[in-house]
Design a protein around this nucleic acid. Structure first.
Lengths: 208, 208
DNA sequence: GTCTATATGAAGATAGAC
DNA sequence: GTCTATCTTCATATAGAC
């Protein structure tokens, strides 16, 4: 069911991918060197090239694997049916935890950085993250509309979901992308999630 | 009044900076080579090094200059006093035009990409863009509160401004960062701005 | 598949003349 | 300040033995 690349089988093959993951996510495509990847993986130069024909192919494999892991993380955020405010809040908190994780920030950095050179990877990131999250939110909002908890006649379900996700991610994502040493506290995440949910429900909720 | 680097005076010096700007914004720090910059500028290698001691210094000069230009662009967005919906809409449209411009997207890409290596540049970008915009919005929202057009008692003026900017920028910024060949249409910008403004005013406006 | 050793080119930076 | 020519290092990638 993998979209393209096959998962490595042997121990050395896994070591190559793991080393490449570490180096590429830390340094980006151009700054990373195959020498360092090779050393990090504890293998020789030709072992790297035995599994991946070029540095580009190795980078593509790494980013694709990370996008799939990222997508799985977003997909596995539970949506517990219940009162809408609590459900949205929990959703927002979990999404922020994923999106602000060091791995997700690094993936975003290196993928967006080389988007002009690897446009398909940038698109894969978009589909794996914001798109999947927005679709899931839209689905749940549809249920809330049915239940009469919310009124989305005007902007539409999809636009409302997209806006909600933008509100949740917007400011903290920007902040931690531009402050690479800093880490968000749980309190900040909760606070921002509450702010976004409250605003969203003030705008569209029925029993505000 | 410049914060750090001095503006180039001679024609060659300007050519070096212009060439570096073009190449760095297109390729990022690591992928860019001083050879290409030198050729782009129409000067020799040592002319580059006569003005900037290292590639790093040249990159810093380019990004700082771009951040200042970006800040000026955000600062020069007019806030015409008038009815709040129209004022916010115009503000949102102009902000999106700036933030989604090819130069701003490229600046974001290369700066965020190398944020771990050049953290002060990433912070400069944050201050030049989101921070300046949010402060301006907060200022205007304070006036709207005074005029009784809006009620921001609960989240507070600064949080509301930050949320508004997140709503405006969120989805389209993400979309065009991850689809480098595509360009937004004016209609899309207007539509997204309207959506953000309407939602914000539904949540906090008094005469919704 | 995996290693050591190496080919080949390009990168950042400098020397020295003008 | 500006050029041509060059130094040195390090990059991607390959050859050939096991």
């Amino acid at each position: 069911m993998k979209s393209s690349a096959s998962a490595p089988t042997t121990a050395k093959a896994r070591a190559v991918l793991a080393g490449a993951r570490k180096v590429f996510l830390a340094q980006g495509y151009s700054a990373a060197s195959t020498d360092v990847i090779q050393r990090e993986a504890g293998v020789s130069k030709s072992t790297v090239y035995a599994h991946y024909p070029t540095k580009e192919a190795l980078f593509v494999a790494v980013v694709q694997a990370e996008c799939e892991a990222f997508m799985d993380a977003v997909r596995s955020i539970p949506i517990r049916p219940g009162a809408l405010p609590e459900t949205l809040k929990a959703l927002a908190v979990r999404y922020l935890e994923v999106v602000l994780s060091p791995a997700a920030l690094a993936l975003f950095r290196v993928t967006v950085a080389d988007a002009p050179r690897f446009p398909q990877l940038a698109r894969a990131l978009y589909l794996a993250g914001p798109r999947v999250m927005t679709l899931r939110v839209a689905e749940h909002l549809a249920q809330a509309v049915e239940a009469g908890e919310i009124d989305l006649a005007e902007p539409g379900r999809d636009a409302a979901a997209s806006l909600f996700v933008s509100m949740v991610r917007g400011e903290p994502h920007m902040e931690y992308l531009t402050h690479p040493e800093a880490r968000p506290t749980q309190a900040q995440i909760e606070q921002w999630a509450s702010l976004a949910v409250n605003t969203f429900l003030r705008a569209y909720g029925r029993a505000g």
